[in-house]
Design a protein around this nucleic acid. Structure first.
Lengths: 346, 346
DNA sequence: CTGTTAGCGCGTTCAA
DNA sequence: TTGAACGCGCTAACAG
């Protein structure tokens, strides 16, 4: 392994001079700098990350954490896209990304704390948040620099989110506009902030149209196709009448398609469906599925930028900026009993 | 920040004793160990990763690299699943995972070399390989510990792969068994080893049935739905007759569905389709798509285990073990003009 | 079984 | 503008 001493020897200077060249100090003669650079080149020298970390007390590494509930969403393109976004920014600013996938929220909390305490990462990007999330509370208590992708329900934290309330409201209004009258809402894990927000959007749409919000029409489902199916079957068995569903995720919407097939309902004539996340394959589903498109890549870039900016000015008082990105309702056949298929995508 | 010295002081021992406790040395009295552990507990002590790395010359971190061509495949669940697999094993063995997503193979090579030279990672898991891949050549030259997910065409390297040749052969034989007579092969980037292997499987199937291998029936496509569509249209314009397609990825197979819709071909009556990767949504595609299921999660666990085992015994001569995992053809309607839909999945 | 000492490779004083 | 000396937190070799 070639060290700073080897370079110094070859260039005929002291190690500290080499260090200055690396740091880009200007208190150095052009000639010396050139000699040092040549020596570095020749020896293929690369500074040892651990030694730098130790001396400067930072790691140039950001941790990205995903917990179990999210892991399921791993089946759609959301997380990969977020990661691609984060990576683009990190790379441009010479940061690395450490990922930590946990099975439970306790494990997630342990892992995050460890990464921070070990000084393995300078900050964290947290990918989902629960109501009263213990991870977030801990991170705040320990004053860990972090950005949340999503929203913290209890207090402002640095975060990047898409406007779930607005999006779910749009989706529901769209169903109403299409003449559906009894819309049910199939939620994911109700402990997640994102679920709560989407549910609120659904409610707001009903209220805006002076329609009653009926708890019977709201149901929580396992985050899977099967879960979506079972939730609707359950509602049906309870005798709740409905002719459309706003599902908190595409997987749940696919469960709704299963439900319709199973009970002989025609989509969109008898039954309208909208989902969330607009996975790339939605246009190919039968029928093509209406869905809310989330800017996943952008969530990643924005989160990373926000975090790195924060780290770059540590003394600056931390304003708990919350960035909100727009989402878009992609209308396809599964929710269109009025418009002709020609006028819509997919 | 609490260091080993603080613990030592509180426990009334020397720093090296604390270090021994951490390392689990047995040359230590039970009583002292208990005192030290209590002090560690009390101070919430966690060893600094950089200092350990520096002293022990390892990082307990594995790099995972993805390059552009793969990034597209990011839209299906393959990479997330691989990562989940890697993560499970890494976590169990106290390793961390650093990810590096590059746009070009040159950039990928740079990033990997840097991670190694900086000593930021102890080894690498490389996610895709090209024919004559410069990254792999470099890693071998520099004697970097790495495992390839895939296969190296030129020489044996530590790798974990699914049997692409066999899988493509199965897929093609299945189409032949279903009575399709003119099967074309739509390949991804022909520079990738995986593309070559799948193409070879296709050829082997034809040869086994004494059918001619016709270069006119083999075409390379952009890795996208649109690319799959254009490739088939191109073949059609060239006057190549065909009634079925073996596509090297589900995305390309979706392009084939588009093609069939566009030219009024019925699937599976007029036109049979099989894809690769069996994305979770394939059962919902219209028609449900036959596809080769890859054990992505297992590829991840096996790759990580292989790498960590190698790192664990560095002096042992490196046998270039190549692990091959089976894949499975999931038959659905898109390729079944003989069997009844009841007898098949999806 | 335990303490002392000397690095690991780099950044950063303080002098010169 | 440059070099010498020390410290970052931990491990390991050597004494005892």
């Amino acid at each position: 392994m070639t060290t700073i001493k080897d370079v110094a020897k070859l260039a005929g200077v002291s190690p500290s001079t080499v260090s200055r060249v690396i740091a880009g100090s200007n208190r150095i003669s052009a000639e010396t700098r050139a000699r040092v650079l040549r020596a570095m080149e020749e020896l293929n020298y690369v500074p040892n990350a651990a030694a730098r970390s130790l001396a400067r007390a930072n790691s140039w590494t950001i941790g990205f954490t995903i917990a179990r509930q999210a892991e399921q969403a791993f089946s759609n393109a959301f997380f990969p896209e977020v990661m691609r976004g984060m990576s683009t920014v990190a790379q441009a600013r010479n940061y690395n990304i450490l990922i930590s996938i946990s099975r439970t929220i306790e494990e997630e909390r342990e892992k995050c704390l460890q990464l921070i305490r070990e000084r393995r990462v300078d900050g964290l990007i947290v990918s989902t948040s629960r109501i009263n999330d213990p991870l977030i509370r801990t991170l705040l208590e320990e004053d860990v620099p972090f950005v949340l992708i999503g929203r913290c329900a209890e207090r402002p934290v640095l975060s990047v989110n898409n406007d779930n309330v607005q999006a779910a409201k749009m989706a529901t209004l769209h169903l109403l506009d299409q003449g559906y009258e009894n819309i049910v809402f199939v939620s994911g894990d109700s402990g997640l902030v994102v679920s709560r927000d989407r549910l609120n959007g659904y409610k707001q749409a009903l209220i805006e149209r002076d329609l009653p919000v009926d708890q019977m029409r709201i149901i929580e489902a396992d985050f899977s196709i099967e879960g979506g199916f079972r939730a609707l079957r359950e509602l049906r068995e309870r005798g709740v009448p409905f002719d459309a569903v706003c599902a908190a995720d595409d997987l749940l919407a696919l469960g709704a398609i299963r439900f319709a097939e199973h009970f002989g309902l025609r989509i969109p004539e008898d039954f309208g469906i909208v989902g969330f996340n607009d996975s790339p394959l939605m246009p190919f589903i039968h029928p093509p599925l209406t869905s809310v498109r989330i800017l996943a890549y952008e969530l990643g870039t924005e989160a990373m930028e926000l975090l790195l900016d924060t780290l770059a000015s540590p003394n600056k008082p931390r304003t708990m900026k919350e960035i909100i990105l727009p989402s878009e309702l992609i209308v396809r056949r599964s929710s269109c009993r009025l418009k002709t298929p020609d006028s819509i995508r997919g």
